[in-house]
Amino acid sequence: MTFTNNTPASNRHFRYGNPAVVCDGASMRAHCRQLATVVTVKGDVGTDNIEQIASYVNRFILPEKPLALDLSGVNSFAAQAISLFYDIDDRCGALGVDWTVIASASVAGEIRHQEVAVPQSASVPEALHHFDEGNTARRRLLPLLTKSA
């Protein structure tokens, strides 16, 4: 297993303060946005790195902050990696937060093959828009819930 907490300076996608974490063929990066936390995974997701990926993603599941798991850059997705979705669903369910997956073709194919119910979005902007609509709906209900007779 190989863990690397930096990317080369020659990489034009390098961001100071937010380096990619590289683990056995997959790179991971998290962005905390106003509407949600976006965790991006690229490369190959397999049996040798699924535990490290799950651990990394779980670090960024925060109370009252939806999670968008961007797997659109995943080239290969092992059948055993479906356990990642169960783990995320359990953690998000316990905290009461929404989550969604932006799936690449290989991830979507494995989801269909195993017939797993996973909340999906077509893109990160679509996921953020969905989370924003949920926040707006909750804000409309808030004055109704706080009024007393």
Rank of each mutant, 00 (worst) to 15 (best):
P63F: 14
T47D: 13
N6Y: 13
E64D: 08
A26V: 08
A105P: 03
G46S: 12
C32K: 12
T100H: 02
S106D: 13
L84G: 03
N75T: 11
R33S: 08
I50H: 07
V101G: 06
V97I: 15
D70G: 07
I82G: 12
K42H: 05
S27Y: 04
Q34G: 00
L62C: 05
I50V: 15
A94T: 15
N6Q: 12
N6V: 03
A94Y: 01
A9Q: 14
G25Y: 03
P19C: 08
A26D: 05
G134H: 04
E64F: 05
L62Q: 14
S76W: 03
I111L: 08
N49Q: 04
C92R: 14
I53L: 10
S148D: 03
N11T: 02
S148T: 14
Q34C: 09
L128W: 01
L145V: 07
Y56C: 00
P66K: 05
A26Y: 04
V74I: 02
Q34R: 07
K147V: 11
G73N: 07
D132Q: 04
G46M: 02
L62Y: 14
L142Q: 04
E126S: 10
F77V: 13
V74P: 00
A137L: 09
N135F: 14
V22Q: 05
S83K: 04
Q114R: 14
Y86P: 02
P8S: 15
R33A: 02
S10V: 10
A26M: 05
G96M: 07
V21E: 13
R29M: 00
S123A: 11
T100W: 00
I82R: 01
H13R: 09
V118W: 09
L67W: 00
E133M: 11
A117S: 12
I53G: 09
G43D: 09
F77E: 00
L142D: 12
V21F: 12
Q120W: 04
T37L: 06
A127L: 14
N49A: 04
V38M: 02
F60N: 01
R15S: 10
D90V: 06
K42E: 09
G109H: 09
R12C: 03
A26N: 03
A36Q: 11
V22D: 04
A78S: 13
Y86H: 11
G134P: 00
P119N: 11
D98L: 10
A94L: 03
D87S: 14
L69M: 01
Q80T: 13
L35W: 10
H31R: 01
S10F: 05
V41I: 11
V45E: 02
